[in-house]
Design a protein around this nucleic acid. Structure first.
Length: 460
DNA sequence: GACCCGGAGGGAGCCACAAT
DNA sequence: ATTGTGGCTCCCTCCGGGTC
């Protein structure tokens, strides 16, 4: 969902100004045709202008049409046939292709497709079960919803409808909508809205989201709700519009400016920061304390999860944002378990410090990198240096075995292998790779977490 | 443990050129 | 005239080395 905030208006404008495609040949709409003529007569103007006219009818029969500049027909999933007609197919809830018929014009076919998508989205929304502890749907679709580009073939109408129904919709969505250009995973704006959840924060989370922002001015500190539903310290980096349509450009403190978002006064995602200045953070009470980490900020996202760029300034903030105990009291000593995990993850995933840090509470990428470096140079101190101090078996006490064949080896932490790991449970006998890179017979004595974050305690 | 700086790598846009 | 392809450039993120 971070793509949502990243795809700001400049991207939209850039898309409109640069990705001009030639007018298609099967025009059935008169208004549309005149538009094409204008574009064709002055292509240079179109290329350099900030707002090129849409080459296709964007709506018909009260429905938002799904334009696709890459498709010959000009519309998503509308295929032109040799006989001049147009075949259209949609995707059902499981993303299986569903034939929707053959029509004489592309416009007709596109309208049928739009009707199909609307119906599908309404069904999806109806099936969305709202969990009190989070603004994320039961089965996070963040991986599925890949908002690669924000383009004119999106559905601002759909976003507006959803907003009217009380769903959180970013102002960028209302202006340009968001539809992935990946045809195989073409999802509508409503999908993104589902991930964001209803606008009204539940009382159960301790959120107090009074409408805020009407009085906010450039540079003011406030708190803003990111697309994950977390309240983060932010500042007003810009403003536009007036009255009810006034919008603020919200810059999340400590995050890259590309994550800035335009937010409307009535979006319910702004609130006062309690008078705090500078790098404000959500108060302890406002930090979501969820048992499930799905709503956690990017700093503790699982390996491979899309993350907001940049990072909180301190480990304490990162940990606090994750609902973990603050480390403000001083350095947290490294444990042997952490060292082992670092070594194992480096072996499995390489030196991807940010990702490794994401699965180690209280640790930043820098800290993990430093730790790894010091272990390698024999400078490790503390509990980890005393091998076995926390139950870890000294390497010398283990009996090495022959390394399993490549096909049998399962590298922990590789999401591709998650399915294999899921088959294991307490008591399972496995071969495990220790920090020195030697294989030993081992037994799984405990487990914790679920899904991609599931971990197994290995006893050599 | 955090910060600074520089380099590597990838994505996206732009442009020229060749093919149709 | 249109379309496809490849090279170039810019920008951004991440990582490594060094330092405080």
């Amino acid at each position: 969902m971070s793509y949502l905030s990243r795809m700001n208006q400049s991207v939209l404008e850039g898309q409109m100004s640069r990705s001009w495609s030639p007018p298609p040949q099967d025009v059935s709409n008169e208004d549309e045709e005149s538009t094409h003529t204008e574009a064709s007569e002055d292509r240079n103007f179109v290329i350099t202008a900030a707002a090129a006219p849409p080459p296709r009818a964007t709506a018909a029969d009260g429905l938002h049409l799904h334009l696709n500049s890459r498709a010959k027909s000009g519309y998503t999933r509308v295929e032109s046939l040799p006989d001049g007609r147009f075949r259209v197919a949609g995707l059902d809830a499981e993303h299986s292709e569903v034939p929707l018929g053959i029509y004489s014009t592309a416009l007709e076919a596109a309208t049928v497709y739009a009707r199909h998508v609307k119906k599908r989205d309404e069904q999806r929304l109806a099936g969305f079960t709202y969990r009190q502890e989070g603004l994320i749907q039961d089965e996070p679709r963040a991986k599925k919803v890949r908002f690669q580009k924000r383009s004119s073939d999106a559905g601002p109408e759909a976003a507006a409808e959803a907003a009217a129904e009380g769903w959180v919709v970013s102002t960028a969505d209302l202006k340009g909508g968001a539809v992935t250009t990946d045809e195989d995973e073409q999802l509508s704006v409503v999908d993104s809205i589902k991930v964001m959840g209803p606008a009204a924060a539940p009382a159960g989370r301790g959120h107090h989201s009074e409408p805020y922002g009407a009085m906010a001015q450039l540079g003011d500190q406030l708190e803003a709700q990111d697309p994950h539903g977390n309240w983060l310290g932010a500042s007003v980096a810009g403003e536009r519009g007036h009255g009810d349509e006034r919008e603020l450009l919200v810059h999340y403190n400590g995050w890259n400016k590309r994550q800035d978002e335009w937010m409307g006064m009535c979006c319910g995602r702004l609130r006062a920061s309690g008078g705090k200045l500078g790098r404000s953070k959500p108060s302890a009470a406002s930090v979501p304390k969820t048992a499930n980490s799905s709503a956690a900020p990017p700093a503790c996202a699982p390996l491979g999860a899309p993350q907001r760029t940049g990072a909180p300034a301190t480990a304490a903030e990162a940990a606090e944002a994750c609902g973990a105990p603050s480390v403000a009291g001083g350095a947290v000593p490294w444990t042997a378990e952490e060292d082992e995990r670092i070594m194992a993850l480096v072996q499995a995933s390489g030196r991807r410090w940010r990702e490794i840090a994401a699965v180690l509470p209280d640790r930043t990428g820098d800290a993990v990198r430093n730790r790894y470096s010091r272990i390698q140079h024999g400078a490790a101190s503390g509990a980890a240096a005393a091998a076995g101090s926390d139950g870890a078996v000294p390497a010398a006490a283990r009996v090495p075995i022959q390394a399993p064949s490549e096909g049998d080896a399962v590298e922990m932490g590789e999401t591709d292998e998650a399915a294999s790991c899921e088959l294991w449970g307490k008591g399972s006998k496995v071969d495990a790779l220790d920090v020195a890179g030697t294989w030993y017979e081992a037994k799984l004595v405990d487990e914790r977490g679920q899904g991609d974050t599931r971990e197994l305690l290995v006893h050599y």
